[in-house]
Amino acid sequence: MINQRSFAQFLGWGIFVLIVGVVLPLGVRQYQVALLTEIIIFALFAVSYNLLLGYAGLLSFGHAMFFGVGAYTVAIVLNHISGLSFFGAVMISVMVTTVAGFAVGSLLLRHKGVPFALLTLAFNALFYAIATKWHSITGGDDGLSIRLPDINLGFAHLKTGDITVFYYITLLIIGSVILFCWYFTRTAMGQTVLLVRENEERMKFVGYNTNVSRLILFVFTGFLAGLAGSFYTLHYQFTSISAISIDMSTIVVLMVIIGGTGSFIGPILGACVYIYLQDFLSDITDRWPFIMGLIFIFMILYVPRGLSGLIDSFGERLRGRWHLRSSVEMEE
């Protein structure tokens, strides 16, 4: 089972991260602020992926299909509907993603394990093919650029084009959604997901429709990935074919595995490390994806609980109450 931290502990972390999040941009260069924005967006993408992998035990190689649908929908509606507001575009985008999640999820309903992994990859390829071929709408290989609408709150006019302003908007919205995801893992539905993973047969025999529970979770994670995708487009004021590619699905797998699937924090950590590492390595060498691949294999072989697992066991050692948590999710 997932290592569930106490509420107080999590709240403490939450407040700490929030303060850091608010204060951090004050002292750093614009470039760093943009990087932080990217981290927050990818943190949500990774958290949504881990709800599938870490909580439900469903390995998907196609999570970018929803990220991409979110990214493209925002770009398409902003290009075609004049006067559409910032939040209007985001709303339409997540609605479209939810519908896409439902359509794909209904076909995958009866599958889990290896066939599920294979099918998600195939569906991602389908979405990618649509995005490349449907040139008139998606711009094909050229991608789509947008003009970012400002946010008018009545009492304040937010210039979303400003990197720092956009950062705070992202922190507020995506940050609260990530917090909700954490709460979700404690709700009846979140617990149902965990229990289905642990003993699906018994869940059926105490009255749960486990296919429905899988579908609901799948649609929900699609919705979250779509939201992350829409902010990705808004952040870069551009979307390209890479947003919906299998490479993007690969990135989220790498982030989550590096960060660790065994805790809620793991994927967030993974997103931070991946993006900073990418930023750092790509300055030094063009071969940074190769290095990422080596790190990935190393983690799978030697650190199956990821960085968050490492930190957990290190912390426990420090506090002198080292004991093996037999509840490590992967080792069932």
Partner: peptide, 29 residues
């Protein structure tokens, strides 16, 4: 055939809450 990783209380509560309609609720614990 129970939920081995859960405690006894939660094992039983899984069925009880299902019977009370608390199955896929996103808001309630």
């Amino acid at each position: 055939n129970v939920f081995k990783e859960l405690n006894v209380f939660e094992n039983v509560r899984a069925g009880v809450r299902c019977d009370h309609g608390l199955r896929y609720n996103f808001l309630k614990r």
